[in-house]
Amino acid sequence: MNAEFLAITLLVGLGTWMLRYLPTRFMRGTGDPEAPLSRFLSATGPAAIVALFVGAILPMLSPDLQSVAPLLIGSAAVVALYFWRRDISIATVGGAIVYGFVFALM
């Protein structure tokens, strides 16, 4: 095992642990939603989802519209279904079905 890989893995693990432990340690009893730490923590969930989404779609991007069409239509279906039903599970499953259907047609 590479020493750099081990060091990065340990640092990422430590950072993840700190993001989970420190807020519970320092925010006991405060409950103020306008506190800077509360606002930071409420933003980390959406930021993590966007980071995972971008990391997942980057390898799929290409200038060929035919290869990108399932991704674009599936993503649009997720957004449309979410705004229609306000349910993330229905939007996710529906977007996956639309993506698969468009992929099969291409």
Rank of each mutant, 00 (worst) to 15 (best):
L52D: 00
A3H: 12
R28E: 06
D87Q: 11
L65N: 06
L41E: 01
T9A: 15
M106E: 03
L10E: 02
A104Q: 11
D64T: 10
Q66T: 13
A104F: 14
S75T: 12
F101V: 14
V98L: 06
R28H: 14
Y82Q: 01
L105Q: 11
E4R: 11
D64N: 15
V98D: 00
L72Q: 01
W84M: 04
I97R: 04
L71Q: 01
L52W: 12
T44V: 13
P59M: 04
A7S: 10
P23T: 06
R85W: 07
S75H: 06
G55C: 08
A7P: 01
T24V: 11
V93E: 02
M27S: 05
S67C: 05
G55V: 14
A77C: 10
S38M: 02
R86L: 04
V68Y: 05
L65K: 07
A35H: 14
T9I: 09
L61D: 00
R25L: 03
Y99L: 07
R25F: 11
L11S: 09
W17R: 06
V50C: 03
S89H: 15
G74C: 04
I49M: 08
R25M: 08
G55K: 06
L61R: 03
V79S: 07
G55E: 01
W84E: 00
W84L: 11
G31T: 08
M18F: 15
P63C: 09
M106K: 13
L58C: 05
A35W: 10
F40D: 00
R85T: 11
V68A: 03
L6Q: 09
R25W: 09
M106N: 13
A96V: 14
A80M: 05
L65C: 10
L52C: 13
M27T: 07
T9S: 13
L41K: 05
S62G: 15
A91H: 09
L14K: 04
F83N: 03
A3C: 07
E34M: 08
I97W: 03
T9G: 15
A96R: 08
A76Q: 02
S62D: 03
A91T: 09
M1L: 10
A80D: 02
A80W: 08
F103V: 04
M60Y: 08
I57L: 05
I97N: 03
I90V: 15
M1P: 04
S42V: 12
A76D: 01
T92R: 06
T24H: 14
M60D: 03
A7N: 07
G100P: 02
L81P: 00
R25Y: 10
P46S: 07
V102Q: 00
L37Y: 09
V50I: 12
P46V: 08
F26D: 00
V93N: 05
D64Q: 06
L81Y: 04
P70L: 05
D64F: 15
V68L: 03
S89T: 13
G100M: 07
S42M: 13
V102Y: 08
I97C: 11
G95N: 04
S42A: 11
L71N: 00
G45K: 10
I8S: 03
L41A: 06
P23E: 00
R28K: 13
F83K: 06
G31A: 15
A7F: 10
F26Y: 14
R25P: 01
A51N: 04
R25E: 00
V68S: 03
L65A: 15
E34D: 04
L81F: 12
A96Q: 07
A47R: 10
A35T: 11
